[in-house]
Design a protein around this nucleic acid. Structure first.
Lengths: 241, 241
DNA sequence: CCAATAGTGTCTATCAGACAGTATCGA
DNA sequence: TCGATACTGTCTGATAGACACTATTGG
């Protein structure tokens, strides 16, 4: 940071802000869903909101995001390690919180399937909600904007990174990985072309030489795990929208 | 934002933060350069720093970024309108400012050529510095990290958006546009292929039906202006690095 | 003339889109 | 047997990489 050069500086002269983190935790099951909590306090008491909280004086903003992910989602340590967390965007409108001036640093978390929410923890009021439902209903504060930004970030990240493997779980079949793409992008892909792209991209996936049977019949599928690569060049293509 | 659900809430119980904006203003002349100001106050007095300042109580963070861009760069209104400004990333390490807890929301600005810095304004101490020099020398606070993030954002944005036209100026020849890519990416491109890509991408550029003579001989080049398109699908290709 | 830049054309390799076809499972 | 899924192969069109060639300027 840097104040306006050449002017006198007095820290107390500048308005105090509260800084929070809010986390868009996305997961792919039947459809794309987001983790929401029910607010127990004013304002917006009883409304659905993204998990999050105030940044403490002795922790960085990134650390606060990790802490809130632990405290508010009830995810196990192992599940947290398999979760991708990145900074999304900062929301700083003047009136976004009716109580006081609050700037929120939003984060995006991508995690496999639906981690079991542990009852009895701080996350006992957390629930997975279909993103379409979440956007159609009412969310506290400007959380609908934040959720929208998170979804769009996730959509574009699947294009040029291997992050879909994080959403597909510790291991997965190519059919399951394709399902992740189809659910996040909201469009169907051609099986043969999808397989060719994934298997011809070095470092995307690694075969585990085991097979998995589906529930509805069909030949058993090879199980893969995430490969060492992180970027997709050229990217996975999707129809413009 | 949302505090930890189910716990008592008292705004005064949460630590006060100062919130600043810092702007990475990039421009392409002979090489890629960044606008730096010399700090006139402690800490880091006399050091180079990114332009920026505190967010006021009655303005949004985005508004603060626009205001600082006006106040600290000495750019004319017309130049400001031709400048791209977007949020980059938020830096929130605990000890990034020795005085107090400061969270900085960094912005990236892309502007044409080197706008004349108006002496006698707040920007009288502002100067364009080669980004390599800026990164090799010392910058105040964590501004080297912020600059690095800005450069990388600019590099990737040229791949999949038409923003290079913003850096090339209100109008430009294809040679000038290619020079923007080569300077930002630090690699040379094949002329014929670059021309084909630009001209075959609908909405990238529009011919003005005027021609411009260079300084070192050569045929006069057609002058283009930015087209209505904003995204490049498929993206402009560059060698991995 | 030469150097430098603008602009065009072409061959090739790669890759995405589309789709046909075979193989292996559960019911 | 049938429905469903896994997996392979192939044709075509679009496009990037590489490079050769001509045209027009200043010196």
């Amino acid at each position: 940071m840097s104040e306006k050069t050449g002017k006198a500086y007095d820290p107390r002269a500048f308005p105090p802000f509260a800084v929070t983190v809010d986390i868009v935790v996305l997961s792919v099951g039947e459809s794309l869903s987001v983790l929401l909590v029910e607010r127990g306090l004013d304002p917006y008491v009883g409304w659905s909101a993204l998990p999050g909280g105030f940044v403490r004086a002795d922790e960085s903003v990134d650390e606060a995001a990790h802490r809130e992910l632990r405290e508010e989602t009830g995810m196990t340590e192992a599940r947290i390690r398999g979760t991708h967390l990145e900074q999304l965007e900062t929301f700083g409108a003047v009136d976004r919180d009716p109580r006081m001036r609050v700037v929120s640093v939003a984060y995006l978390a991508l995690t496999a399937e639906q981690p079991a929410l542990r009852p009895g923890t701080d996350a006992s009021d957390a629930a997975w909600v279909d993103v379409d439902e979440a956007l159609a209903g009412r969310l506290a504060f400007d959380h609908a904007d934040i959720l929208q930004a998170g979804i769009e970030r996730a959509r574009s990240k699947l294009e040029y990174t291997t992050l879909a493997t994080t959403l597909a779980g510790p291991d997965f079949t190519l059919g399951e990985l394709q399902h992740v793409y189809e659910v996040v992008w909201g469009q169907s892909l051609q099986r043969a072309n999808f397989r060719r792209k994934v298997l011809n991209t070095p470092g995307f996936v690694e075969a585990t030489h085991t097979r998995r049977r589906g529930r509805t019949g069909g030949a058993p599928a090879t199980v893969y795990r995430p490969g060492p690569g992180s970027t997709l060049t050229p990217p996975m293509m999707r129809d413009d929208q």
